[in-house]
Nucleic acid binder design. Sequence first.
RNA 1: GCUGAUGUAGCUCAGUCGGUAGAGCGGCGCACUCGUAAUGCGCAGGUCGUCAGUUCGAUUCUGACCAUCAGCUCCA
Length: 669
Amino acid sequence: MITITLPDGSQKQYDTPPTVRQIAGEIGPGLAKAAIGGKIDNELIDLDRPITRDTTLKIVTDKNADADALYLIRHSAAHVMAEAIQRLWPETRLAYGPPLENGFYYDIDCPHPITEADFPAIEAEMDKIIAENRPFSRYEMSRDEAFAKMKDDPFKTDNIERADGDVISFYATGEPGKAWEDLCRGPHVPSTARVGAVKILSVAGAYWHGDASKQQLQRVYATAFPDKKQLKAYLAALEEAKKRDHRVIGRQMGLFHIDEAVGQGLVLWKPNGAIIRQELQNFISEQLRRQGYSQVFTPHIGRLGLYRTSGHVPYYRDSQYPPLIDRETIQKLSDEGCPCCELANRMESGEIDGYLLKPMNCPHHIKIYASEMRSYRDLPIRLAEFGTVYRWEQSGEIGGLTRVRGFTQDDAHLFCTEEQVAGELMGCIELVKIIFATLGMNDYRVRVGLRDPDSSKYVGKPENWDKAEAACRNAAKTLGVNFSEEPGEAAFYGPKIDFVVKDVIGRDWQLGTVQVDYNLPERFNLEYIGADNQPHRPVMIHRAPFGSMERFVGVLIEHFAGNFPLWLAPVQVAVLPITENQVAYGNDLIEKLKAAGIRAVIDDSSEKIGKKIRNAELEKVPVMFVVGAKEAEANQVAVRRHGKGDQGVQPLEDVIAALKQTIAARSME
RNA sequence: GCUGAUGUAGCUCAGUCGGUAGAGCGGCGCACUCGUAAUGCGCAGGUCGUCAGUUCGAUUCUGACCAUCAGCUCCA
């Protein structure tokens, strides 16, 4: 007897294993028609797969396009796409084709380089297969049989090796043995027609097993929905998201510029962008004063030996700008006929000195700490700097403000005793939370980055790592937010707590970070004198609540879609005189706004008021003062808010007082 | 770094089957003096990403390089 429990709590009992199709049919013909699969406990299954145990059952339908339905549809669409591609290019071999959050892809080894021009043909072929309405038929065999069947296909052989269990399944779209088929764990929709509407999105290279030393395959990205309407809505949403891209808005609003002549990944902050950055810096500086930080300044370069001590040289040579060497040394080496590779070797060995553009601020801050004898009474010492660092990121990775080669961290290093670590970590996390709350950024995830036990890139003793990882884990637990532990995501000197957000096209970016470090204090032999009059080693905490100003502002632009709250808006008020006769009054307003510390511009062009309003709206200026003869007469302004329209005529002094208050409160308005 | 695509005016883009280019917006000028998302007319602006090659002639064809975009890999 098999008992099936439905979502409403009702139960059904069967003598022989029922299928989802059968159960759906008993509930109602409409449901049976809409059903594309089932979910027993937490496992998706085919519509026609017998259920052999007592379980809960949710019937998955394509009427309700939830995550389960989309998973089935997209997993099945991947098969349809693979079949279509193999019809067009029969020599194509299939590697791996999983569903994704918003679609699916298939990694293929295809002699024909697929380009966008091929998409319509692939889609047309897919549409044919969908129209053919062929059933997805599952059949199974033993692992050994599967190996024998797939012995000529290295990708599928590899997939079998990675599969769990002794039973390997195949899905044919049609009659097994006669129709197209693929090795697959399933489950799938009952027939190709249920795949609905598909769209090929892009194609890119992808390494087999994600290993850059392995063969590169073609990865075709696509998406699928139950019907054309939902597909269209998704594609429209993608287009909308692109308009929020910080690279687009950054240009429109004159926030930043990246110039080929300056260099890849090197950001020029234009006046409007500089205002946003400065406001953010002012904001965090206030928090730092409150939390007892000390501001420091350090130069952009440091001698190689410093980074040899820290561990940056030689481990991170490939991700740094090459060192600078003084002119005399270069001349001397040139006279000796020293080749470049020899120069590199001699610098690495320490035989030749040079300066590195700093890839991190910590060594400089460490030297500030070490410049005086420190007592336990001095601790914790918190050194903060908006420090600009340079890293040689791979060219293919660079883009916009989110991944750059020169960036400014809102960096600080805390030197404290072992006992103070937990409290200091809490303070750092609090800071990040304040920032996110102030800016209304609630959609973030927290990652605790731990060391990868199999990697050799880390410095320091295992026992130090254990202590540091425990401290991070404990601090994360106090957050009140879910977090994931991710091995391999640690910094080379210690574990970290990262705050990660998504950009408009769904890419993850690390913003705030808090890192515990027992290792650099040891490498630099840092000390403080304890109450016992003995030297002790401090613990270091690295933290940057924004992460980098560049990346943070990039993400922030997209978060607000350029519609910044008043305190951050580059232009806070646009004064719009209705005719030239009010320009003098308008200029008067500008002076008064300036005196109140409000950033304002006047549109004294000879355009009509409608055009002036349109321009100010497009420039996303939060507040507009529309002033005509009546307002000038009465020392009033007609207030208009961006996106909200006319707010009515108000006395100037009242409006300015209200704006000042909103700005001072850093309100989200 | 790898795979693929792209690069024409400040921006968005059209165009040239090889004979040195055009629109809209923006800018400038003039007229209009206007009440909550586009007033009209005129003008200026381009070594068609860079450098080679083929050709009588290259923005167009070929190659290399640079940059941008997407993905992969990487990210102290």
